[in-house]
Nucleic acid binder design. Structure first.
Length: 576
RNA sequence: GCGCUCAUAGCUCAGCUGGAUAGAGCACCGGCCUUCUAAGCCGGGGGUCCCAGGUUCGAGUCCUGGUGGGCGCGCCA
């Protein structure tokens, strides 16, 4: 649709110049912008004339009337002055066939663009701890990271997904200490438990143990020291339990369609950064106090004083992040690095980026923190201590179970190759749509009942529309290309608009790292199609020319749905 | 206390760079399956867009100041 906007803006600007020969072309260009009229019967593209009123010293109504007369209507479209607006009615049959044919010719790639071509973008997300399984918060992080990565790819960028596994530190030692104390050498296989949950149970057990006495904390701290000193026995235990945790988490990734191009481990990166800080100290960017602690003073930009290195020379979270950022840029020089991390860490990233800037890192301004809000429950915050944390695997099981039941209730089992697989995909669609429909910056309330609903503005609704189109096109395949129809109903024209505007929506959503823009667009597209499907015969239309066009249009819509759902990591279903 | 962030229908959320009567889903009420999958479609009620100023031809959208919620302000990560 963008092309039509540009074409018509040019036409309107030219007409303004002709109607008002004294006006300035550049100024006119700046003052007019294409918009979409609130209602279809007002036109397809609108140009408000308010901004011109001042420079042309005439009322917007007069201007639009005069300009509309100058442009006149032609094959490309009809022009109408409505009050202060110039409204354009496009030539529906011409635009419709051009749009549908472009989408069909793209053979599954309609929506891809070169908007971010040539840009190398690294995106970090997930970053789990190896002491417990993934929970609902991780699912939002993963959904966002994966979806943004896919959108960036579609917009033409070269993308590298990275994960940073938090596999060391006192919290990891806690589950290790509890296992040492109570585990009796058992393995997840022996007790028949998913291995990350097995590890997580000991993390929970540790909390109990800690309440019972002071031994627990002492042992955990001691363990951390032993680990850092390279104690063989502790490292063996550490590796064993990390393996359980990570392999379990990877199963969840596999199940939810999450993947990475490179995985970093904190145990291998936590020492990085120290040298860079010392370098900065030499360069006078940082200061060292009498105790030997290295500081950075950011009070001049309204931030705080922060410690970069402890007096004993050991690193902190911040130190480590400085190191990993540099390491990553060495590993894979990027134009931009996006960190998908909860918004509670905003301050940390401000400091991190500023410290890198002061270290003279040229690409410091290319770093971006994609901060997303918390996931809360209707009754309030998730609290691990109160056991209200929603476990990722359990949630997926629950969703899949309900989807399975729904399939049974609708008597769809005999229509499906494997109802269990379909149920799993519906569950994933419900979850990902639910998590991505809200703007990332906002906190969201995860209402379990609502997330399990399969009607209305939900992932399964989008999947259902896709399945119905697929089913129809299986019975009556679409033509490879369509002829301009003699006329178009509003329901068809709405869909042409959707198909036409889709690549721009993907590019915008990618550039703003915001999958919710795409989610909203796909829902509206699905709704428009449902209405079209309800109101007009498609495969069963009697007029072969009408049938052919509608099948082509349906195919184009299906391509949009398939492509778009893919970007949201929602399985497209041929049948459900 | 300081900083960041959010505030739109009973509930959950949209509202693109300020533009024509503020939208959706859920819930509630009422219609539509001998017809391409009813996980659907259509209709109805329901809103001082937190408050007060300001900028503008025009503000849910931008600015300032409040109010309320969330988060942050560790030599934790």
């Amino acid at each position: 649709m963008k092309q039509y906007h540009i074409e018509w803006k040019r036409a309107v600007a030219t007409a303004v110049l002709r109607a008002f020969p004294d006006s300035d072309r550049d100024q006119i260009d700046r003052l007019i912008h294409p918009e979409t009229p609130p209602e279809r019967n007002l036109g397809d593209i609108a140009f408000p004339m308010f901004p011109l009123a001042r420079v042309l010293k005439k009322s917007p109504q007069q201007i639009s009337a005069e300009v509309a007369t100058v442009i006149g209507s032609g094959d490309a479209g009809r022009v109408e002055a409505t009050g202060p607006y110039i409204n354009i009615f496009l030539n529906r049959p011409v635009v419709a066939s051009a749009t549908v044919n472009a989408a069909l010719a793209a053979s599954g790639r309609w929506g891809d663009s070169a908007a971010l071509a040539g840009r190398r973008i690294m995106i970090e997300f997930s970053c789990p701890n190896t002491n417990k399984p993934l929970h609902l918060g991780h699912l939002r992080n993963d959904a966002l990271g994966e979806s943004v990565a896919r959108m960036l790819l579609a917009a033409g960028a070269t993308v590298r997904r990275v994960n940073l596994i938090n596999d060391r530190g006192i919290h990891i030692c806690k589950s290790m200490a509890a296992y040492e104390q109570f585990g009796q050498g058992q393995t997840p296989e022996e007790v028949g438990k998913k291995s990350d949950h097995f590890v997580g149970d000991y993390y929970v057990r540790y909390a109990q143990w800690e309440k019972e006495g002071s031994q627990a904390e002492e042992r955990a701290r001691q363990m951390l020291q032993e680990w850092e000193q390279g104690d063989a026995g502790i490292h063996q235990l550490w590796e064993r339990m990390n393996h359980w945790a990570i392999s379990g988490i990877e199963k969840t990734y596999l199940r939810t369609g999450i993947s990475f191009d490179q995985v970093y481990y904190e145990s291998q990166t936590y020492l990085l950064g120290r040298e860079k800080i010392l370098q900065g100290l030499d360069d006078g960017v940082f200061t060292r106090d009498e105790k030997g602690t290295v500081w950075v003073d950011l009070t001049d930009i309204q931030l705080d004083k922060k410690v970069l290195l402890r007096a004993d020379g050991t690193s902190l979270y911040l130190t480590q992040d400085i190191g990993t950022a540099m390491q990553r840029h060495d590993d894979w020089p990027f134009d931009s690095l996006v960190y998908v991390v909860a918004s509670e860490q905003r301050y940390h990233f401000q400091v991190l980026f500023e410290v890198l800037r002061r270290l003279g890192v040229k690409w410091a301004d290319s770093l971006h923190h994609l901060a997303y809000g918390m996931v809360n429950l209707p009754e309030g915050k998730m609290k691990s201590r109160e056991g209200t944390v929603v476990d990722a695997d359990e949630l997926l099981d629950q969703l899949a179970g309900l989807a399975r039941e729904e399939i049974r209730n609708k008597e769809r089992e005999e229509h499906l190759e494997d109802p269990a697989i379909t149920a799993e995909r519906v569950a994933l669609g419900a979850l990902h749509y639910y998590l991505l429909q809200t703007s990332p910056v906002k906190d969201m309330i995860f209402n379990p009942e609502e997330s399990l609903a399969f009607t209305g503005n939900t992932g399964p609704y989008l999947q259902y529309v896709g399945a119905r189109v697929s089913s129809m096109l299986r019975k009556e395949p679409a033509p490879e290309q369509v002829e301009p129809p003699t006329e178009l109903a509003d329901e068809e024209w709405n869909l042409v608009f959707r198909v036409s505007g889709y690549p721009q929506v993907v590019a915008d959503a990618a550039a703003s790292y915001n999958p919710s823009l795409l989610a909203g667009f796909l829902f509206e597209t699905a709704r428009d199609f449902s209405r079209f499907y309800h109101d007009h015969p498609i495969a069963v239309a009697t007029d072969p020319k009408v049938r052919s066009f509608r099948l082509g249009l349906s195919m184009a819509v299906m391509e949009v749905m398939r492509h778009g759902l893919g970007l949201l990591n929602i399985p497209f279903l041929e049948s459900m």
